[in-house]
């Protein structure tokens, strides 16, 4: 749905790192290995949180609840 705030396994704060990661990799084309280094993500539990995430909330917002 929306990026989890903490890593499920270790509890590191990763919620605020998803946007910068997408900015670096998708928009600027930086390899994800380098992007993780810049964002100080070292463990693979935190990396999978970001890599495997799909932002489904954008799809759901197309069907508003209020109308």
């Amino acid at each position: 749905m929306i990026i989890p705030i903490r890593c499920f396994s270790c509890g590191k704060l990763i919620g605020d790192l998803y946007e910068p990661y997408i900015e670096m990799t998708v928009k600027k084309g930086i390899p994800s290995e380098d992007a993780f280094k810049k964002l100080n993500i070292t463990r693979f539990c935190c990396k999978r949180m970001i890599v495997s995430h799909i932002n489904l909330i954008d799809e759901i917002l197309n069907f508003p609840r209020l109308q």
């Binding site: 929306i2 990026i3 705030i5 704060l13 919620g15 605020d16 998803y18 946007e19 909330i57 954008d58 917002l61 508003p64 609840r65 209020l66």
Partner: peptide, 15 residues
């Protein structure tokens, strides 16, 4: 909060 950029939720127009 530690960082001001932690996403909580997204809101559509009017909500």
């Amino acid at each position: 909060p530690v960082s001001p950029n932690i996403p909580i939720v997204k809101l559509e127009h009017g909500s």
